[in-house]
């Protein structure tokens, strides 16, 4: 923060290296941040972005888990569909936007689709890998203890692949978050990405940076506090931290 202010004082005020509209002072940025919160712009934006990503992400998690389970269950599907899914996964989600717009039109569903598509594949692949890497001893032991069919899935296979599933969920979340921002910047009427673009259109660098800060903070909070915490709990329980 201090470095930033010093850089601003030096670069903009004294040396005139940059113009104030390309390099804002942190004070300006926080003033803007405050006023954006005060007039509710950011609150509305965060809420509408949150609604989108939660819905889109939930859909993708459910779809991803179902697709993953189906792939594991049917071997021929695994052989044929896995490379396809892997290929699809390398495609950045935002590349789906034109496709989505053609399907749904330029509206909410199109953004939702883009959010969901990236994380769906990430979740599906993680689940598949998780299940494939289960220690076969767990399954054998469970079978001798009278577990079979659905019971074995619910009580052994899913919990055993939980660490992999959680890292898939985490990765899916970061894909969804990126897709959300990209989608909003290109086609939304509300949301964080849209406020960011408004800042650009108004050439208001303080607003641009204020929104970027909000995006970073939200991203870190969800990643570290929610997913980080879940991961940590699992690692402790399983004793994975003892190297």
């Amino acid at each position: 923060m201090i470095i930033w202010e010093v850089a601003y004082e030096l670069g903009v005020e004294y040396l005139r290296l940059w113009k104030a509209y390309v390099f804002p002072s942190p004070i300006d940025v926080f003033k803007t941040l405050y006023s954006l919160f005060a007039d509710q712009t950011l609150v509305i934006a965060i809420l509408s972005s949150a609604k989108r990503i939660i819905l889109g992400y939930l859909v993708s998690v459910i779809l991803g888990l179902i697709i993953g389970l189906i792939i594991v269950k049917f071997k021929w599907l695994d052989e044929n569909a896995s490379p396809l899914i892997l290929g699809l996964q390398t495609l950045p989600s935002i590349c789906w936007l034109p496709f989505a717009i053609l399907w749904y039109g330029l509206n909410e569903s199109a953004i939702m689709f883009v959010i969901a598509i990236g994380s769906t594949f990430a979740v599906a692949i993680a689940l598949e890998a998780g299940i494939k890497n289960i220690n076969p001893l767990y399954i054998r032991a469970a079978r001798t203890m009278g577990a079979s069919g659905f019971k074995i899935y619910w009580n052994v296979i899913l919990p055993a692949s939980l660490p992999a599933i959680v890292s898939g969920l985490k990765q899916g979340w970061s894909f969804a978050w990126r897709a959300l921002m990209a989608g909003e910047m290109m086609s939304a009427t509300k949301g964080l990405g849209q406020v960011l673009m408004v800042g650009r259109d108004l050439a208001d660098i303080s607003q641009v940076m204020a929104v970027m800060i909000v995006i970073i903070v939200l991203g870190v909070v969800v990643d570290k506090l929610i997913f980080g915490q879940i991961e940590q709990n699992i690692r402790q329980r399983w004793g994975l931290d003892r190297a």
């Binding site: 054998r140 032991a141 469970a142 055993a160 939980l162 399983w238």
Partner: peptide, 25 residues
Amino acid sequence: VVMFQEAALFPWLNVIDNVEFGMKM
């Protein structure tokens, strides 16, 4: 019931839940 060379206990369950596993099934 089989006992293996490795204990084949489930790391996601604590001791008592592991012991209860078969009865739960």
